[in-house]
Nucleic acid binder design. Structure first.
Length: 726
DNA sequence: AGCACGCCGACT
DNA sequence: GTCGGCGTGCTC
């Protein structure tokens, strides 16, 4: 008897067994089953002869939804890998890999298309009778020659004209089953293709040499070096072979201009997937791509799950971008999944960036990835000059030193725009002396203490040791000890008072909620309606500000002394990206970084030698400190109303891992934000020198963790390869 | 997850 | 007396 094992949307690391009703469904098809008191939609994952469950208690499948699998073998392989690697329930994984419409039971087949054709009276109709209705006239004339889809006609001639002709019974609606249309393969043209420079040509031919096999390329190109052109010319032969290309872009980078560039070059339709689409629109792109009807699909993180009939190339643009890592539920990294997918589908993969993630760079340096470098600037791009401004013992007004205020004034008087940047990401508050710049360090770990206001103590995030918050600086006895960081609001009010004649605008994820709002703001900036721009992360991505000639980063110390070891890397990426987005060739910009530690070696290296040099130095530091990419990490997070519960739970988790001598346990320690929404948050970090060692231990213990007595009382999660420690 | 069952406090 | 609070436990 066939046992059907089904992946159901239930947060358990298991499949559920059912019996076939009469017909045995195919693996990869959706089915409807009864599960306890309710009905669920699941995906057939395995068909076996045996079951661990009592065979007499197995229920029958109620309905088979799909005639043909919606998950092919490769996609099932990817889902299984995700469930295995991220230790996540398989049903949940399968769910995230499906468009929402399919989760709800919508048909996976493309809907029949409505065509318009002439009726008998329409065929004999005298067109001159419509001379006073030009839209209807031209529509009827067109239908005389060709068939049109209803939606196309509505778009080109207007709904009212279509409706009028239908009412007059000159034309009629005909529904035809959807026909797979791969005409893009014949439509490809190549237009507006510039001559590649030597570096670009080298990169393009390297990719071209590996088009028929798995290969991973790091396209490491400085801002303005023409990475997109390399993508375009690498895509060309793939499309010409009739194969499809999937491009991932960061959340904010999916602008109409980007899409247009791909559409225009090849003259074909491009499938787009972003958060603004309706469920139906997403489903349509999914269907078209699965049927091979799209040559190019561009999308954000979750687009990595888009099926392709005939995959030829994967591209991850701005591969270092943090938005590729999902921060809740299935905490996967789309870039890492792209590597697995390219391998499974035997296609090449291009990872492009000006500021590679240290993990990626390491893979390139060790020869695991092909390292393609673009170091020449193309066109009229410019890069701002970088400078450090020492603010020790300087009076600060709303976080800005007088010298910097004067400089802002100068630039504004020249009619330029000024950008003030507050770095909030990776921010772990440390206590710093404003007189001498001293930061209290843990003696055992030589790492800065992290300030925990809730517990009123300083805590080391490496060993967990704590001490009360000091009143005086240990080095100069000053009592001017400040938590690092300024708020945007305070800054906004201060600037309004200091520069009453100039308009300022704040751009952060709160003020720019919704895509159109951000576009409006960016337009008003480019129209010079505002002279002072105040922003966070969001400004560093994708947008160019040609009239900005001064960029000031206010609080880089938060990142330099953060307990989050990735903060320095992120800061360097940010600085490099920002420097490439301000000014232009005729009007280059300057960038200033306010700091209490102007001599910081990483900072000096970045400013004097650029990101590539900095990154190699940072890698060296990671190696000596036993940090990723030289070690592998997994982070348990727990939150509960009672801090003791969260702590005890993680303590119990730590005990489970104490038997593995090659797995380090750090913690439990309070999370950087100890208290959020009334809940206390703790974390436990696991680390190992080999990925397999950590994977093995986790694989053995996750199920044990679920049986811990506090497991249901505490909200807990497991993050593999964590990026964010907040 | 979601839904039922169950055991205790405050209401017409 | 019952209505409903959410703790516990189970779903093939």
């Amino acid at each position: 008897m066939s046992i059907i094992s089904i992946a159901l949307p239930i947060p358990k690391r298991q499949l559920f067994d059912y019996l076939a009703a009469d017909e045995i469904p195919k693996i990869g098809c959706r089915v409807r089953v009864s599960f306890g008191p309710r009905k669920l939609i699941g995906v057939v994952w395995e068909i076996n002869q045996e079951s661990d469950w009592d065979k007499n208690k197995l229920k029958k499948i109620e309905q088979i939804i799909d005639a043909q699998p919606i998950f092919d073998a490769t996609q099932r392989k990817l889902c299984s890998w995700l469930a295995q690697y991220y230790k996540h329930p398989i049903g949940d994984v399968v769910q995230s890999a499906m468009p929402v419409a399919l989760r709800k039971g919508e048909s996976s087949e493309a809907k029949p298309t409505n065509y318009l054709t002439l009726t008998d009276s329409g065929k004999t109709f005298d067109l001159s009778n419509l001379s006073r209705a030009p839209k209807q006239y031209s529509l009827l004339e067109k239908l005389n020659k060709v068939e049109l889809t209803k939606s196309q006609a509505n778009q080109d001639f207007g709904i009212s004209a279509v409706k009028a002709l239908l009412d007059k019974e000159l034309i009629q609606d005909v529904s035809k089953p959807h026909q797979i249309n791969t005409s893009w393969q014949q439509q490809i043209v190549v237009q507006g293709k510039p001559q590649a420079n030597v570096e670009q040509a080298l990169a393009i031919s390297s990719v071209e040499a590996k088009l028929a096999e798995f290969a991973c390329f790091l396209l490491d190109g400085i801002t303005g070096s023409g990475k997109t052109e390399v993508y375009l010319q690498a895509i060309e032969p793939v499309l010409k072979q009739g194969k499809q290309v999937l491009i991932l872009v960061p959340e904010i980078g999916l602008t109409p201009q980007t899409v247009h560039r791909f559409k225009y070059r090849f003259g074909i339709d491009v499938g787009i997937l972003h958060s603004g689409l309706t469920n139906t629109e997403r489903l349509q792109v999914w269907q078209k791509s699965k049927n091979g009807e799209l040559g190019i699909v561009i999308g954000t993180r979750s687009a990595i799950f888009t099926p392709m009939l005939n995959p030829g190339l994967l591209i991850v643009d701005e591969e270092h971008d943090a938005s590729y890592k999902q921060q809740d539920g299935l905490r996967y990294h789309a870039r890492d999944l792209a590597v697995v997918r390219a391998h499974a589908e035997n296609t090449p993969l291009i990872l492009g960036t000006a500021t590679p993630a240290l993990e990626t760079l390491n893979n390139a340096l060790t020869g695991k990835y092909h390292h393609l470098q673009l170091q020449q600037r193309a066109g009229k791009a410019s890069v701002a000059t970088k400078h450090v401004f020492d603010i020790r013992q300087q009076p600060l007004q709303f976080g800005i030193a007088q010298g910097m205020l004067d400089r802002i004034q100068q630039h504004l008087e020249q009619g330029s725009q000024v950008m003030l940047f507050i770095n909030r990401r990776g921010y772990a508050p440390a206590l710093m002396c404003h007189q001498c710049g001293h930061v209290e360090h843990c003696h055992r770990c030589d790492k800065p203490f992290t300030l925990h206001n809730q517990l009123y103590k300083l805590q080391c995030h490496h060993c967990g040791s704590a001490k009360p918050i000091p009143q005086q600086c240990n080095q100069c006895q000053s009592n001017e000890l400040n938590a690092m960081g300024v708020g945007t609001e305070q800054l906004e009010i201060g600037l309004n008072k200091y520069f009453p004649n100039y308009s300022n605008i704040r751009i952060d994820s709160d003020s720019a909620r919704g895509k159109s709002k951000l576009d409006t703001m960016l337009n008003s900036i480019n129209n010079n309606e505002h002279q002072i721009l105040i922003g966070t992360q969001i400004l560093s991505k994708g947008h160019h500000f040609p009239n900005v000639t001064l960029v000031l980063i206010l609080d880089i110390d938060g990142a330099l002394f953060s307990a989050d070891y990735r903060a320095a890397e992120n800061l360097a990426q940010l600085i490099t990206q920002l420097a490439g987005r301000a000014g232009r060739a005729e009007k280059p910009g300057e960038m200033w970084l306010q700091t209490h530690d102007p001599g910081h070696p990483l900072l000096q290296d970045l400013i004097n030698n650029g990101y590539g040099h900095f990154a190699q130095y940072a890698l060296l530091e990671r190696k000596t400190a036993n940090l990723p990419p030289y070690t592998y990490q997994a982070l348990f997070k727990a939150q509960a109303l009672n801090p003791k519960d969260a702590h005890t739970f993680l303590q119990n988790v730590a005990e489970l891992f104490s038997q593995y001598s090659d797995v380090w346990c750090l913690g439990p320690i309070p999370a950087l934000m100890e208290k959020r929404q009334g809940q206390y948050r703790m974390q436990l970090l696991l680390q190992a020198k080999q990925r397999s060692v950590l994977q093995h231990a986790l694989g053995q213990q996750v199920n044990q963790i679920e049986t811990l007595f506090l497991a249901n009382k505490v909200r807990w999660s497991l993050d593999i390869d964590p990026q964010d420690f907040s």
